[in-house]
Nucleic acid binder design. Sequence first.
DNA 1: ACAACGAGACGGCCCGTCTCGTCTTGGCAT
DNA 2: ATGCCAAGACGAGACGGGCCGTCTCGTTGT
Lengths: 195, 195
Amino acid sequence: MSRQPDESRRSERARQAIHAATAELLASTSYDAITIEKIAAQAGVGKQTIYRWWPSKAAIIVDVWAEVIAPRAAFPDTGDLEADLRAQLTRMLDVLVEPVLGLNYMAVIADSQRDERLAADLSARIFAPRIADTKDRLRLAQAAGQMRDDVDVDTVADLLYGGIFFRSLFRLVPLDRTQPDALVAALIRGIGPLR
Amino acid sequence: MSRQPDESRRSERARQAIHAATAELLASTSYDAITIEKIAAQAGVGKQTIYRWWPSKAAIIVDVWAEVIAPRAAFPDTGDLEADLRAQLTRMLDVLVEPVLGLNYMAVIADSQRDERLAADLSARIFAPRIADTKDRLRLAQAAGQMRDDVDVDTVADLLYGGIFFRSLFRLVPLDRTQPDALVAALIRGIGPLR
DNA sequence: ACAACGAGACGGCCCGTCTCGTCTTGGCAT
DNA sequence: ATGCCAAGACGAGACGGGCCGTCTCGTTGT
């Protein structure tokens, strides 16, 4: 039943043209207005060539992002946990506040809510690596006595990233570049009364 | 330029039929498979009647939810901040873990990323009231000395709700009903070393 | 040679608008 | 109050349009 195309005969030229066309559209066009037909036209490629190698437009976008942003990740480790967390969240927020890109970013996440394959792809290639890095950094902090070791690193990751994404999701409050400072400070010191 | 229909002549029968049909579809059908044409057919209503009163299918859904869940909200206040936050987050998680409803819930949030009017509607009628309640409860806690008063309640709300939604969003880890306990405990006590 | 390629035709689904003819409603005259 | 009437909402569904995903075509490249 496998109808797999022959990977070894794949056209590198077409692949790059599709990536380039998608990147261009991503920077200039809203997610909804990006269609596979437009990508194909802009890349000078047949639609079938796209459908042969990708299951959806979002998968192409994830592919493009994975190639672009994978290298420039790397969680900072200056020895100062609070500063490092702040730096990492700020970096993430920088993407989200980008006018077109930030919205398209959220739109892909949105689409992943209805497409399980996309969700798996997006998690595995974009988020999981960063979150794994974050957890590694947190464990280092625990080992260095900068963080209690009776708290679960998964919980901390949820709080940190969730705190950042929550405002992007619901837009009750405009995004604010001082937000990471406040989030990290509250989380590290705790909100309970001073002991 | 206003092409507003006459609200006073609106058919209550049609409104209820549309609400009922939407509620039925929401419980049984994935968000993508819910179409305005299906709602109209199921309700025994002309498409135009829907388009006359709602801008999108998601708006109908928000309308239905607002009517159903508005009454049963009310933030708990037992005097114990930690228990109250835990209870509130658990309540929210209960909706998200619901198999069909939870997915449709996230799908509407997803759609709101591409539709500004929907985002405003969803925020105003579903989220903003709950978050406002949460902030009120937090301010009470501050006044009662159960919470530091040098932390911003907005930041705390972001951390709490973000922490819950984050796992639903990315599904890196399965949803877990013990999550609220861990989130609240970590946030109240802080993750920094004991002083 | 064979399979991927560019190009584009094709049927299908749903969109949002538009016409019908019918039914309901609120305002007005009696 | 009661009956009449015009306005407009109603159910039904036709319509053009956009994009989907599949399917031919020759053509190209390996």
